[in-house]
């Protein structure tokens, strides 16, 4: 169980969800109820297909701690920090400047 620090890649043990931590925080980050891990599970996890889908390229945040994560592979969630469910951020919709 790793503290979510910026740049850390995290993998769900319950679904195919993969994340990058953009802004770190203290606490335990879970996906579908189980703590996320720093190594991709082998063999790949069969996705149980829960209701809460974590979406590719979306950012999820915890307002209380400031945690911000970026989804790099979609799958079933939900994501939570110390039991508080993360909320999906509205797209920044920035045009590319480079």
């Amino acid at each position: 169980m790793a503290k979510p620090t910026p740049g850390l890649r995290l993998f769900s043990t319950q679904s195919g969800v993969e994340l990058i931590v953009v802004k770190g925080a203290d606490g335990v980050l879970t996906c579908a109820g189980a703590p996320m891990v720093t190594q991709r599970p082998a063999p790949p996890v069969a996705d149980a297909g829960g209701a809460a889908q974590v979406q590719l390229t979306k950012r999820y945040a915890d307002a209380q701690s400031g945690l911000l994560v970026l989804c790099t592979r979609a799958g079933s969630g939900p994501l939570a920090l110390d039991g508080r469910e993360l909320t999906m951020q509205a797209s920044q919709a920035l045009p590319s400047s480079d």
Binding site: I20, V22, L56, T57, L70, T72, S91, L94, S96, D98
Partner: peptide, 30 residues
């Protein structure tokens, strides 16, 4: 990049023309 760019969001047909020289900061960040 991590704050504003959507990862892996480009399609197979997307292409960017990089003409800013490599010693320019915009070339690197691009």
């Amino acid at each position: 990049v991590f704050g504003t760019v959507d990862p892996l969001s480009a399609t197979e047909d997307d292409a960017v023309l990089a003409s800013v020289p490599p010693y320019h900061i915009a070339g690197l960040v691009g």
